[in-house]
């Protein structure tokens, strides 16, 4: 808050002494300094974690960052640990969830945006109210149901996919906001030409919806990729059913941190790199989705 006040109010005073151009240059320099400072702060943890992942001389937390002995030992160790299993689990979960969840979310949001039917408003209100309940509570029962179906512990992956996908219809807001902006006249024209509503969807709307489809795919992939709580609950301390988040979290527990700290860093890098690359490539769509979704609430 105070930052805003300082930089903003310092500008007019300068104007009196210098020309417009000069004052802008000073202002911009200040902003550059600020932005570069922020960038450094933002990057520090990520640079540190990468550096520490190459540290070979010790495996516990140390007070310095740059390794004294460099090497790939931590990465090599990862491949001899359960990490590979966790990684595969996470990838499979994220992949299936991302595809199925996108289908569900698009069905839901498209319908709520395009159709006017009796249950529409009540449905939206019910979902709004449901969203106010802490989802954490449902975990207990979902765990028991999954357990009865045999989908917990070592078989946690299909169980997780089922739960992630099944309730994903609730997150329709952003894509509904997108569909709302596509003019209805397009649909009506196609309907007059004899297209069924299903044809309107996949011949007219879907080709226009690439940004929102990609946005939904991306967020649906990133969710399970980093989910900790439910995955921890469902895998229930069984290593074979964990995802990377649960496995790596356990490595930082009191009794393991001294042996596994640098491996955590290496694992973190391996988990973060693909999703970061993916995100950076699709950043444009993400920004569109987030911006649109926030404005429409």
């Amino acid at each position: 808050m105070s930052n805003i006040a300082n930089t903003a109010s310092s500008q007019p005073k300068m104007k009196k002494h210098m020309g417009l151009k000069a004052s802008r240059t000073v202002g911009n320099t200040l902003i550059y300094i600020l932005l570069i400072t922020i960038s450094i702060i933002w990057l520090i943890p990520f640079v540190f974690i990468v550096l520490q992942s190459f540290r070979v001389e010790s495996t516990h937390q140390v007070g310095y960052v740059v390794p004294q002995v460099w090497g790939f030992k931590n990465y090599a160790d990862l491949f001899n640990s359960n990490f590979v299993k966790w990684y595969v689990n996470t990838f499979v979960t994220a992949l299936f969830t991302c595809i199925l969840q996108t289908l569900i979310v698009l069905c839901m949001s498209y319908t709520l945006s395009r159709f006017r039917f009796k249950m529409r408003k009540p449905l939206m209100k019910i979902m709004l109210i449901l969203g106010l309940f802490p989802g954490m509570l449902s975990m207990i029962i979902l765990y028991r149901v999954l357990k009865d179906l045999g989908l917990t512990q070592a078989n946690a992956v299909p169980g997780l996919i089922l739960v992630y996908v099944a309730s994903s219809g609730m997150g329709y807001y952003v894509s509904k906001g997108f569909f709302d902006t596509i003019p209805k006249s397009l649909d009506e024209a196609a309907r007059i030409d004899g297209a069924t509503r299903a044809q309107v969807l996949y011949k007219i709307i879907l080709p226009l919806s690439k940004p929102i489809v990609i946005y939904t795919l991306l967020t649906a992939f990133m969710g399970p990729w980093g989910d900790y709580v439910f995955a921890a609950y469902v895998s229930n301390n069984t290593s074979a059913g964990m995802n990377v988040a649960v496995g790596l979290y356990n490595w930082l527990s009191q009794d393991q941190i001294n042996k596994k700290y640098t491996m955590f860093c290496a694992g973190g890098v391996l988990v973060a790199v693909p999703v970061t690359v993916l995100f950076m490539c699709l950043q444009r769509y993400y920004v569109e989705g987030v911006t649109g979704g926030a404005v429409k609430g």
Binding site: W42, P45, I257, F279
Partner: peptide
């Protein structure tokens, strides 16, 4: 792009790491 990195990197990595950075004997 630099700022957006915190969105891209899963929170359990970034937050856990930062939490350890601020540990009693952290960096």
């Amino acid at each position: 792009t630099i700022l957006v990195m915190t969105i891209a990197i899963p929170q359990f990595i970034s937050l856990l790491y930062v939490s350890k950075m601020f540990d009693k004997n952290g960096i």
